[in-house]
Simulated assay, not measured.
Amino acid sequence: MNKRLMLNMRERAILTSMPFMAALGPQALARMMESVVVNHHETRDVLFREGEAARHFYCVLNGYVRLYRLNREGREADVRICGPGDTFNEWLLTAGDTYPCNAQAAEPVTVARFDLAKVRALAEEERDVARAVIHCLSTCVRSTLEVVANDRLQTAPQRVATYLLGHCPADCTSASIRLPFQKTLLAGKLGLAPEALSRAFSSLRQAGVTVRGRLIQISDVSALRQI
């Protein structure tokens, strides 16, 4: 189900603080906000499919969206998991006329949708928007390189450890973390099959990591850093 909504104060704050919007001047920001459409999707709703004509890029305001590819046999592979504040499809602002992957609501999700054609036209008129597009594309390239490097250089337990350490409070010796989503989504986010994620968690027990549903206890943060 796809419902069109009005922006609330929290969602407006998320939108205006995302990197693409944060650097815009008042005039350019106002014109960008005029083009925003907010939609709500239920779990497993498909936002778009690979190969469809590309008309929008998105910012997640609430919930999580899976970007994934399918092979000929119907096997799915997650490309990215997008949460609140994340944008996707912005690379289509400069090239590409079809969506390169599928997008599905992993849970009830609210997204802001931008019309690609309107933003391209706006970038021709507003220098701030043109600069924001360039910055956004640069960020996409850097993050993609980082993901590829981690996939090549880190083992599955190391990927999980890096994720957990990134969510530990600074200077803590132990920590308790609650995943914001199901472990199947974490597996996709880290580029792992669900069974590979389970094996990785099992191997991290030696570093004091215990898992109970979404709750993850880390008894020795320093040991986890040594993985």
Rank of each mutant, 00 (worst) to 15 (best):
A200T: 00
I177M: 06
F48M: 14
V60S: 08
G63F: 05
R49V: 07
M32A: 10
S222Q: 13
P194L: 09
M18G: 14
F114E: 06
V147G: 11
V221C: 00
S143T: 06
L116N: 00
V46H: 13
C172M: 11
R212A: 15
V36R: 06
P180L: 13
D220G: 05
S17C: 01
G51R: 04
T87L: 14
V60T: 05
L224G: 06
D86W: 10
A161Q: 07
D115L: 09
T162D: 08
M18S: 12
Q217D: 08
G83M: 02
A156H: 05
A28T: 04
G213Y: 03
E195H: 13
V147T: 12
R49H: 09
I81M: 04
V46D: 15
D78K: 12
P169V: 04
T110C: 14
C82T: 09
L186Y: 03
G83H: 05
V147I: 13
T173I: 12
A187H: 13
M1Q: 11
S219D: 03
N71I: 00
M33K: 05
D78P: 09
A156R: 02
Y58F: 14
V160P: 08
M18A: 13
E34P: 10
R4K: 15
E52K: 14
N89H: 11
S219L: 06
S198T: 03
C140S: 14
L165T: 03
Y68M: 14
A106W: 13
H56C: 05
A207S: 15
R159G: 05
G213K: 06
N2R: 15
T155C: 11
R212G: 15
E126V: 01
